[in-house]
């Protein structure tokens, strides 16, 4: 496995070593009997994140992403292992740490439904004890960057999802946190809102040097934002490195889409295999590293070719295969 450490010399801001989290679940068996079952949400998880990094943290549903973030914020106590964020053990000094981190849960809101955005921010200023000058400066900047001006006096319950998310991200950053955890920050957003959120995150990471750990199901987030990606599945770290490494690891294939003059049985040709047939159209997979020319020539030679196109390997496909096969690191 190829592991890149972008800043090997700086001391890690986030440090996990052998972290495990086990939940005990009681299940009913029969009418009255219950059995205790252990669910290993995270097992033997070790990684470090350096100051200023922007790391994508991906995995299928139930892989342990949110559990990891909850442990990093101190909400959950690890069952085993060593965990440090900015030198602090999160669960032991949760409140101490809370002043230095920002969290955005895409599916929840930190804002108050019945308050205008401005009042929610004002309450957070008191909660985080942000000095007034600093608060004004930050608020002005975020309002400008995220175009929140017209929304400040609107009660949160009247905001659209994209507007609310911009409010939530602002709320997480008002107190200048060193680390920002984003749990699916673009979930449910339209393309324009997604682009705006990404641009803003890039700005915060580059401008303030805020360390960002981002979980997402939208791999475009990762492709556009993160130099480093970690893949977790079944509570284990499957991959930790850059995006290119993920491509090569996944043994990528490109897809040749062939339109024939008439519907025919699956094409039989060396160097490619048919993965899908739909009327006259057929999809052939071939190694990403190989040239498409000989394949196209061989098909054109023996079949009535009408049109063709080539699809590049999608990172989705690479990762989907990884999830399916459980590639060991």
């Amino acid at each position: 496995m190829t592991t890149t450490q972008p800043h090997p010399k700086t001391s890690p801001l986030i440090e996990l070593s052998g972290i495990a989290k086990t939940f005990v679940v009681r299940r009913r068996v029969g009418r009255l009997r219950r059995t205790r079952a252990e669910v290993h949400a995270v097992s033997d998880l070790s990684f470090t994140v350096s100051r200023g990094e922007m790391v994508g943290y991906i995995g299928p549903n139930g892989a342990g992403k949110s559990t990891t973030i909850k442990m990093l914020t101190g909400i959950l106590v690890p069952s085993a292992g060593l965990l440090r964020v900015a030198g602090i053990e999160p669960s032991r000094e949760r409140i101490q740490l809370a002043r230095r981190i920002g969290v955005v849960f895409g599916q929840r809101t930190t804002l108050w439904w019945d308050l205008p955005l401005r009042d929610s921010f004002g309450l957070l200023r008191r909660i985080y004890k942000i000095p007034p000058a600093r608060y004004r400066e930050n608020l002005d900047r975020f309002v400008d960057l995220l175009d929140l001006g017209p929304l400040l006096d609107v009660p949160v319950r009247q905001l659209s999802l994209g507007q609310r998310m911009r409010g939530d991200i602002t709320a997480a950053l008002l107190h200048d946190p060193e680390v920002l955890y984003l749990d699916e920050p673009t979930i449910g957003l339209d393309i324009v809102s997604k682009a705006r959120v990404r641009e803003f995150l890039r700005e915060v990471n580059a401008g303030q040097g805020t360390t960002v750990l981002l979980t997402t199901h939208d791999l475009t987030d990762i492709e556009q934002l993160c130099s480093r990606v970690m893949v977790i599945d079944h509570g284990r770290l499957m991959y930790d490195g850059d995006l290119d490494g993920l491509h090569s690891l996944g043994d990528s294939e490109r897809t040749l889409v062939v339109d024939l003059a008439e519907p025919l049985p699956a094409i039989e040709v060396d160097g490619g295999r048919v993965v899908r047939v739909d009327g006259p159209r057929q999809w052939l997979a071939f190694p990403a590293a190989a040239s498409a020319a000989p394949l196209v020539a061989a098909i054109a030679d023996r079949y009535p070719l009408a049109d063709l196109s080539i699809q590049e390997p999608a990172i989705e496909a690479v990762i989907a295969r990884m999830y399916a096969e459980g590639v060991a690191s």
């Binding site: 909850k70 101190g74 909400i75 949760r94 409140i95 981190i101 969290v103 849960f105 929840r108 809101t109």
Partner: peptide, 13 residues
């Protein structure tokens, strides 16, 4: 609903 997670990561008791 689990929203208590938000109350728990704030620097308040």
């Amino acid at each position: 609903s689990g929203d208590v997670a938000i109350d728990l990561y704030r620097p308040v008791d």
